[in-house]
């Protein structure tokens, strides 16, 4: 199901080479307890990385006329009220808005967690809203990654076991999944911490484990719900940079719900919601994403 332009042979850790023409080296992160990213002195060749130029006009996810209603008729609340939204491959999108505006509901509907009351969510030509829960669950496992506000790591499992768990649920052997997971954890600056429990990690380190878990399955879309909500500003900023860069390097699109404009600014696109509708949309045409801006399909 994963259609990102990546290597498909296992093990497919973050350093599995797929192209020799990618222009920039992926960032690696400090192995210390600091959450500040550092550039490696001699980074390996950019690997498995879908660069912004790989953005494809065909959206990886496409929501049309999405309506989500809670409660009985008459007193119903419209969490989504006719939302149209496309998400381009390898793009990054922030969904902003005040509490209760419908941003988390939109994320859940796009990810196939909730079925919309009306409308369609197309992913690779399939309408998620029409699929039974079991199929949507499998699709979330194979095609999507998730980063939650508080990490939601299983406290009894070690860091590496938390990362391999969704892969093993998807039928990947423990040996293969472990090789991939160790590679991801090293890449995210968690060398020497593979066997630590979440309670033995700092908040930023635990969130990096969550990012490794989300990306280890080579998802086409990563959904993040207030991923820095439980972190201090400095740690949160470094976690955000890791998240965005890791998604970009992996060719995964990022859909991030936040109420913080500084957090949203790190994404190429931002949509602002109000009363279940998209009220505004911004595109950030900075140098890094210039190509992406050119190619991305911004359709609403």
């Amino acid at each position: 199901m994963n259609t990102a332009p990546l290597a498909s042979s296992a093990p497919t850790g973050p350093s599995a080479p797929t192209t020799s023409s990618a222009p920039s080296a992926p960032t690696t992160y400090s192995a210390t307890t600091s959450d500040v990213p550092v550039q490696p002195a001699a980074a390996p060749a950019p690997v498995g990385a879908a660069q912004p130029s790989a953005l494809h006009p065909a959206p990886v996810l496409s929501g049309r006329r999405l309506v989500m209603t809670y409660g009985p008729q008459g007193t119903a609340t419209h969490a989504l009220d006719g939302v149209d939204l496309d998400i381009a491959r390898a793009d990054s999108l922030a969904v902003m808005g005040p509490s209760g505006c419908g941003k988390t509901t939109l994320l859940h509907v796009l990810a196939g967690i909730l079925r919309p009351t009306a409308g369609t969510v197309l992913h690779d030509g399939t309408d998620l809203a029409a699929l039974p829960d079991r199929t949507r669950t499998r699709l979330r496992r194979s095609d999507f990654g998730f980063v939650f506000q508080d990490g939601q790591l299983l406290p009894e499992l070690t860091a590496v076991e938390n990362v391999i768990l969704p892969r093993m649920l998807g039928g990947v052997s423990r040996r293969t999944a472990t090789a991939e997971a160790r590679s991801w954890l090293d890449r995210l600056g968690l060398q020497g911490m593979h066997e630590r429990r979440p309670t033995q990690l700092s908040g930023g380190q635990a969130q990096r484990v969550s990012i490794a878990r989300a990306l280890a399955g080579r998802p086409s879309v990563v959904f993040a719900d207030e991923p820095t909500g439980a972190l201090d500003q400095t740690t949160g900023q470094s976690v955000l940079e890791i998240l965005v860069e890791s998604c970009r390097d992996s060719g995964a699109s990022l859909v991030m719900v936040t109420h913080d404009t500084k957090v949203a600014a790190i994404c190429r696109r931002t949509v602002a919601m109000r009363d279940g509708r998209i009220a505004q949309e911004f595109v950030r045409p900075d140098a890094q994403n210039a190509q992406a801006t050119q190619d991305a399909a911004v359709t609403r």
Partner: peptide
């Protein structure tokens, strides 16, 4: 309960 929910969201049947 919250972890069961999170695991199901992430693809655990």
């Amino acid at each position: 309960a919250p972890r069961l929910r999170a695991q199901h969201i992430a693809g655990a049947e």
